[in-house]
Design a protein around this nucleic acid. Structure first.
Lengths: 291, 291
DNA sequence: TCCATTCCCTGACTTTAGTCAGAGATCTTG
DNA sequence: CAAGATCTCTGACTAAAGTCAGGGAATGGA
């Protein structure tokens, strides 16, 4: 990561907060406190539950309650008990509230148009292509420890095995491979992590303890649609952080020769190829990293 | 400008304000009110005058004064009379203030790093290339009416004539071309506009009244470094807005065959080629647009 | 020299934003 | 059904952000 790259990213960040951040502050508020405006936006046409709003906007319960009361007296929203749970409250926009939301929509459109309009047809295509690229590359990947038995974890593992079967020259039969039962991916024997993009699972990975100082990386997988934006690297970094906290000094992993991207990732992150340390039948390359 | 493009731009804007806007709010503040933090950032190592700060940050005079007083009691800044004008005050960071600024710098770096670090070498290059592209295409071009006799206007016009001389197959001698004296580019006879990027002049254009309903576009020029990001289009749109406010219904212009980009711009903005309406010796194409 | 203007400051506000400690309903679990 | 947990609301705060109306010093032009 050289200084030129960092400078470019910083210049970009500065420009964008000025150009686009203006939206939040001037466009979106429209004479209304920003908090209320954001709230209307977050409630949306479909309505929402108060607790969900609190979580999404990260607001204090009392504060949110007061904001809702204010919108209610402006008759922009209607608050009712949730049908299934009497403690929860459901918020919905009134017709007036929906009109307000539509205005925000138009203003967002106008900002977008003001960015496109000075450009010619070719420039516009270049702009949206570049934006899509930036978007793809900086999407916030969240990596969290989860149980390997969870629904999303299972889904990732199934995808993973499916992909191995498709890509290995010999196909892939889990029964013939060295086993890694769930118990070995649950603390304290190991961990399993799931990577998410906007809430949807897009990758996974596991760390398994071998002995007091050695761990093994397993089950590294990224959904095809999310490749190239750092999901696997982030999963690996998360597993390594866990390994460090466990005071492991050596990490090992093995991989098949058809998984070229994986090998590039491992080498890039400081893994060096070593002699085979196990008899995994589907492995062609064995790697190790000293922490 | 189709809906898909607008959607992409809006998605991008939303994502970016979340990812990057976090900077302003969490990174930059560091236990200090955001207003003070921004102020330190804006003063910078070079110092600044109070009036300039007020203009740049758009703050109320009383509010800014109080912020400055607060930073002064924290001994982060020093305020003195400006040497040349006793009414103005000059603000400078103390050593402690500069240390604080350096911290913000490091935090900005860290944010940039956090965007780059999950990517591999190739991904990083792609990200900064895409960011540079977006940056180039959405830079805020400001177009303002200025006197054609101003220093920047003169500079633009010289560049313009220089470029004509270099590009026309026959060279260019202003004396042989139809004249457009300064007086005809000053209201009410006409207007002259200068386009600026970050304050620096990067283009110009003029509108001249022919009769009660007809105007003529002249002196359209964009600095080579700023081409492709909509400077000329914005200049043209500004001149057209003026023409409309003057109730002109027809706009004319002529151009040389070597200026292909210009012709593409005119056609794209709704100008149609017409028969020669004057005897400009350097012109090959004559255009007209009904408003 | 006088007078309008510019610039910065002070005092006296208001509005937003956000926090914290309960209270009162409602649900879940043993 | 009792006990504990969850959810929303109210009251009582504080801090930050921003506005408005002058006032005094310095300047520039008539």
């Amino acid at each position: 990561m050289d200084a030129r790259q960092i400078q470019q990213v910083r210049r970009f960040n500065r420009l964008i907060t000025q150009r686009v951040g203006a939206l939040d502050h001037d466009y979106l508020r429209r004479g209304r406190p920003l908090g209320e405006a954001r709230l209307i936006y977050e409630i949306g046409t479909g309505g929402a539950e108060v607790r969900a709003l609190r979580a999404r906007l990260g607001l204090d319960s009392g504060y949110l309650s007061r904001l809702l009361r204010s919108l209610e007296t402006q008759s922009l929203i209607r608050v009712r008990k949730a049908p299934d749970d009497g403690r929860l409250r459901r918020v919905e926009l009134t017709a007036k509230g929906r009109a307000e939301l539509a205005t925000y929509d138009r203003l967002s459109d106008r900002l977008a148009q003001s960015m496109l309009s000075p450009l010619g047809a070719a420039g516009r295509e270049r702009l949206i292509a570049a934006m899509a690229e930036v978007e793809h590359l900086i999407r916030a990947v969240e990596v969290r420890v989860e149980a390997p038995t969870g629904a999303d974890a299972r889904w990732c593992l199934n995808q993973y095995f499916g992909e191995l079967a498709a890509r290995f020259e010999t196909g892939f039969d889990p029964a013939k491979s060295n086993p890694a039962p769930d118990a070995e991916m649950i603390p304290p024997a190991g961990v399993f992590v799931v990577a998410r993009l906007d809430g949807a699972a897009v990758g996974c990975g596991a760390l398994r303890r071998i002995d007091r100082t050695t761990g093994e990386i397993k089950r590294m997988w990224t959904a095809p649609a999310a490749r190239g934006c750092g999901v696997a690297r982030k999963v690996l970094q998360t597993l390594e952080a866990t390994a460090r906290s466990w005071r492991l000094t050596t990490l090992r992993l093995e991989t098949n020769r058809t998984l070229a991207e994986a090998q590039a990732l491992y080498r890039g992150e400081g893994y060096r190829e070593v002699a085979a340390f196990n008899d995994e039948p589907y492995a062609h390359h064995w790697f190790e990293k000293r922490m």
